[in-house]
């Protein structure tokens, strides 16, 4: 069963189409990078897959279920594009923020117990931020904050992890260490990762599959296929294709030039 599947999915904001007949499948254990220009529908696609937006036409399923009927939210970890606007002044400790992830899949009143405390502790240790447990979230640096939010997304050891431009506000060192951590977790855990990014070079370095969107699908498949596709070469130009594929090959350079 595919983790996310869309068939002829169209989404509109008012009169403007954000997605136009997008068909795409993300399978178990795959690491997808979704790239494309601003306004190409990357965030719209994942938000529709999670039921945050409603399609105008077409179908979308999450683990084989329509998002509005989906209930096993503990299987999904999500790191949104923009952190809460209240963040800098919000009175929440790192422990409290990560514990929010444990509410997924619980029934009202969603009380947390010892097993949840243990899961929070384990996620913080895994992400290397256990020392920040009692710090206020607003006091952390951008890199530390992203690790904490990633810990929240991972606290249930989800089968699907969706990251929407997670390194947007990070410096190059923090960005590299964030992606290295992500790649390591993917190797160990085997969950499906969907990463939205503008940084196609980094995407090429870590992801196994590429979805190139510009409201409709320009390319969907493995990096190998992308790198060896003369059609993609014609469409994006050899420099753009080389930038992505050079990183994917670890500098080896098996790209079609």
């Amino acid at each position: 069963m595919n983790v996310i599947e869309t068939t002829d999915l169209s989404v509109a904001y008012g009169m403007g189409m954000a997605l136009d007949r997008v068909s795409w499948r993300a399978g178990p254990g795959e690491f997808w990078a979704i790239v494309g220009p601003n306004g190409s529908g990357k965030t719209t696609l994942v938000k529709t897959a999670m039921g945050l937006l409603q399609p105008r036409s077409g179908f979308v399923t999450l683990f084989g279920v329509e998002p509005r009927r989906f209930g096993a939210w503990q299987r999904v970890g999500y790191l949104p594009q923009f952190a809460s606007p209240a963040f800098p002044k919000f009175p929440a400790t790192v422990r409290e923020v990560v514990a929010l992830g444990r509410l997924a899949g619980k029934r009202f009143p969603r009380w947390l117990g010892a097993a949840d405390d243990e899961a929070v502790k384990s996620a913080l240790e895994r992400l290397g931020v256990a020392g920040l447990t009692d710090r206020r979230i607003g006091e952390l640096s951008g890199g530390q904050r992203q690790r904490v939010l990633l810990a929240r997304a991972l606290v249930n050891r989800p089968d699907l992890l969706i990251l929407d431009e997670p390194t947007l506000a990070l410096d190059p060192d923090s960005r590299e260490s964030f992606y290295a951590l992500l790649a390591e977790m993917h190797r160990q855990g085997g969950s499906t990762i969907v990463l939205i990014t503008h940084d196609s070079a980094t995407a090429g370095k870590h992801a196994s599959h590429l979805l190139y969107l510009d409201r409709s699908v320009l390319f969907s498949g493995t990096f190998q296929d992308f790198c060896h596709s003369p059609e993609m070469n014609r469409q994006f130009g050899s420099v753009a294709q080389h930038t992505i594929c050079h990183q994917h090959d670890g500098g080896g350079g098996s790209c079609a030039k």
Binding site: M50, G51, L52, G71, W73, V76, Y78, P80, A83, S84, A86, F90, A92, E96, V97, L100, G101, L103, A104, G105, F108, P109, R110, W111, L112, R152
Partner: peptide, 22 residues
């Protein structure tokens, strides 16, 4: 008290709260 966790989650970040089924 009963709705504490849901209220906290929504106050902190309502988009992520939605993805928790809230």
């Amino acid at each position: 008290l009963l709705a504490y966790h849901e209220l906290f989650a929504v106050t902190f970040d309502d988009t992520s709260a939605r993805v928790s089924g809230i």
